Amino acid sequence: MRAILVGGGLALLISLLGTRVAIRRFTEWGYGQEIRDDGPTTHHTKRGTPTMGGVVIILATVLGYAGAKLLTGTMPTASALLLLFLFVGMGLVGFLDDFIKIYKQRNLGLRSKAKMVGQTVIAVTFGVLALSPAFEDDRGQTPASRHISFIRDFERWTLPVVVVLLLIWLVVTATSNAVNLADGLDGLATGASVMVFGAYMLVNIWQNNQWCGQSDITYGKCYEVRDPLDLAVIAAAITGACFGFLWWNASPAQIFMGDTGSLALGGALAGFAILSRTELLLVILGGLFVIETVSVMLQVTWFKATKKFTGTGRRIFRIAPIHHHFEMLGWEQVTVVIRFWIITGLCVAAGLGIFYAEWVSGT
């Protein structure tokens, strides 16, 4: 538990102070945000706001975790290293996207195909390593599972490795893009991420207490995972890093995380879901990100379908993702953000409630 407190606290401090330095440096270097022309006109005033703040979140997390390991005198586990690989790797893809936007002074960075290639390489590499026998512990447990999981593995079906890799790719790319879609208002994605990563910290603490015999309650055991305590340390570090960044990212934002931060955070969420055997539970815990993604999918699908059959494309929402729709209806940006945070809190509460209830019953 000391490692969790140190990791979270150190990441919070580094992010809080480091973001202020990043704002000053990025402003001097001209690393300003480009704004989409078809978005709400109120966003045009944000043009030039420093971006790529996700670099600070990534550095704060890694340094916070490293500090916790040094303090406790323990070595990083396989699960933790794989999660950090996914976190940093997706952040690098986002960094390239942000850098191209800044360098070419446009709102389009990496082409969609190029971005997907980068996400695919990172996701598949993560999946192969997470399923590798080389990373088995003394119980023969690999970081990732070959079963479909909700709040525990459905052990009736053992999936072929190729199918599992395809599912891992789907979870990683879908989640990273979902967080990227939600990062459209000051503090929205950052505040939502704080709650979801905080939830995964609790999930991994509960798993660690059960399997390490630290629980005095005679509950049914939680399903088995590798290295839950180390995953909890990283979850605490990311939560702390997001908290520190939110101080400067809250409306009116003095810095944006950019794709560097949103893709990294989305990749980390997917990593936690995969390594903690909660892939399907992520749909509930990250309900806000699901809503944002579905709104875009519905908008695009309905527009193409109506254009094909009527000749005129029609829209369900005034603009997608859905947080911009409410802006176009006249809601203040802060109102949209706070209400979407409330939705996230409800989703997290529901997900943790389901997980805890099953952990207690052991069914």
Rank of each mutant, 00 (worst) to 15 (best):
G258Q: 08
V56C: 06
L329P: 02
V203Y: 10
L285P: 01
A60S: 14
D183A: 07
G244M: 11
D216G: 11
L281I: 04
A11F: 08
A178K: 00
F243E: 04
V163W: 11
R339Y: 11
G198P: 09
T306E: 00
F99R: 10
Q141D: 06
M90I: 13
V296M: 11
G311C: 13
Q333A: 15
E28K: 09
G271N: 12
P76K: 05
V290S: 07
P76Q: 10
W331Q: 04
Q299T: 04
G184C: 05
L298D: 02
L185S: 08
A192L: 11
R106Q: 14
A178G: 11
V296T: 15
A182G: 04
T310D: 02
A66Y: 10
L269N: 08
T45V: 12
C242K: 02
G311P: 01
H44F: 14
F272A: 06
V225E: 10
A178C: 03
D259F: 06
S132I: 08
A144G: 02
F317V: 00
K115L: 05
L159R: 01
I35P: 01
Y65D: 01
I342V: 14
S295T: 08
G311M: 06
W331M: 06
R2C: 11
T19M: 14
L229A: 15
N209V: 08
D183K: 02
Q105D: 15
G261P: 08
S132M: 09
G89S: 12
Q119M: 06
F245A: 09
A60E: 06
Y65T: 13
F309R: 01
E332C: 05
R314T: 00
I4Y: 12
A199V: 14
T310S: 02
R24M: 13
L282H: 07
H44G: 04
T293V: 10
Q105V: 09
I4S: 11
G54T: 04
Y219C: 13
R2T: 15
I100A: 13
V300C: 03
N177V: 00
Q210G: 14
V6D: 02
Q207W: 07
K308E: 10
A114E: 15
F87R: 03
I148H: 04
P228I: 14
P160Q: 08
F197E: 01
A130M: 06
R156H: 09
R106D: 11
T125Q: 09
T142I: 05
S193N: 08
A305F: 08
A250Y: 12
A305G: 00
N204P: 10
H44Y: 12
F154P: 00
G213E: 07
L59Q: 00
I151P: 01
R106H: 09
G244F: 13
T45I: 14
E28A: 11
Y31N: 00
P143K: 04
R315P: 00
N107D: 13
I205W: 14
W157Y: 15
Y200L: 07
I58A: 05
L188F: 12
L282W: 13
G67W: 11
A144F: 09
M257E: 05
L16I: 12
G32T: 04
I291S: 07
Y31K: 03
E28N: 03
I319K: 01
V290F: 14
A357L: 13
L166M: 14
A237T: 10
M195E: 09
G67K: 01
V21A: 15
L263P: 06
H44C: 03
L10S: 08
V21F: 15
W157K: 05
L281K: 04
L110M: 12
G89H: 10
S176A: 06
